Simulated scan of single mutants.
Amino acid sequence: MKLDLTGKVAVVSGSASGIGLGIATGLAKTGATVVVVGRKQDGVTRAMESITAQVPDAALRGVVADLATADGADALFAAVPEADVLVNNLGIFNDNDFFTVPDSEWTQFYSTNVLSGVRLSRHYAATMAKQGWGRIIFVSSESGVAIPGDMINYGVTKAANLAVSHGLAKRLAGTGVTVNAILPGPTFTDGLQAMLADAAKQSGRSLRDQADEFVKSSRPSSIIQRAADVEEVANLAVYLASPLSSATTGAALRVDGGVVDTLTM
């Protein structure tokens, strides 16, 4: 099986680190021209250096823009007017209690996790449909299906990702453009490491061991009983971005290590 995206332009939001960087790296390996997008120049630069270290001949473009805002989206559109592949990965999370989360934080989560993907899809899907080929992927979460009690605002936005992706797939029926969502479970990203840093210091565990312990205690239904590696999540997104996934659309595909205990989705 050869995943070849040579000649395609792939935009990955929130790709300066974490799952987004993993997906951008995976797409670069397929020959796509990858657009790395982040809020700060140093983050974008480091991400591009990381990708080049693994893929020396990578075709990369860097864009600095805050895609949680309309102005940031417009800046990206000006720099990259058209794309063949769009990965809506940008997202934020925390574990604040429902009763302490103000309206402003709900708005911030919605703007970042939901509206960013809506804006980018609305812009890039039009050209994809006109050319008769395209791939749009939303990075949702298992938290969008099984809303965690300690991350309600995050779970709500990830559920919204599923709704948008499924509806947009129907809107683009017959155009050659597929729209899908992937649902990662706990993944060993910089963000998860930062969230668990204090717990690791208190326990004396390594961050990796603390992440795996977090899965066992907070997501006990996990079948793999550990946090996934970024590359394991990225592999699914890269497949969905490829021509080989042409019959998969409107789907919510889990890469959650079996956290969600259902036969479907």
Rank of each mutant, 00 (worst) to 15 (best):
D4H: 08
L183F: 02
P220T: 08
A73Q: 04
G191S: 15
K8L: 11
D57N: 13
N235K: 13
S242R: 05
P102L: 04
D95A: 13
A247M: 12
S140G: 10
L253R: 07
R46I: 00
G176D: 03
L172N: 03
D4T: 11
E105I: 03
I137F: 02
G155F: 06
A83T: 06
S222N: 10
M195H: 14
Y154V: 03
N88V: 03
G31M: 08
I152H: 07
L67R: 01
Q193D: 10
R135S: 14
F98M: 11
T175I: 03
K158S: 00
N180T: 05
I92P: 00
A28F: 11
L115A: 03
K130R: 15
R135L: 10
V145N: 05
H166Q: 15
G20S: 07
G258W: 14
S217T: 15
T248D: 09
A251K: 10
A32M: 11
F188R: 13
D57M: 08
V145Y: 06
G38W: 04
A65D: 02
G38N: 05
V260N: 13
F77N: 01
N96W: 06
V12M: 09
N94I: 07
L207A: 07
T264A: 08
M128F: 02
L3V: 12
G167D: 03
R219H: 14
A32G: 11
I147F: 09
L120D: 04
D57Q: 14
E49F: 07
I224W: 09
D97K: 13
D66C: 01
P220L: 06
H166W: 08
G258V: 09
I182K: 01
V145M: 13
G14H: 00
G185W: 11
G257W: 13
G167A: 13
L236C: 08
D198H: 06
L263R: 07
A241F: 14
W133E: 00
T157P: 01
K170T: 12
G26H: 10
M265L: 15
R46Y: 03
H166L: 10
G31F: 13
P243R: 06
A70V: 12
A237F: 05
N113C: 03
D84W: 01
L196C: 06
P184G: 10
R61I: 13
A78Q: 11
P56V: 10
W133D: 02
A24F: 05
S50Q: 12
T175Q: 05
I23K: 12
I224F: 06
A194P: 03
G191H: 06
D229I: 04
T189L: 08
L207C: 05
A227H: 11
S121L: 02
V179T: 00
V34R: 08
P184D: 11
D57P: 04
Q193F: 04
T187R: 08
G26P: 11
S246I: 00
R219E: 07
T248V: 15
A173V: 06
E142I: 08
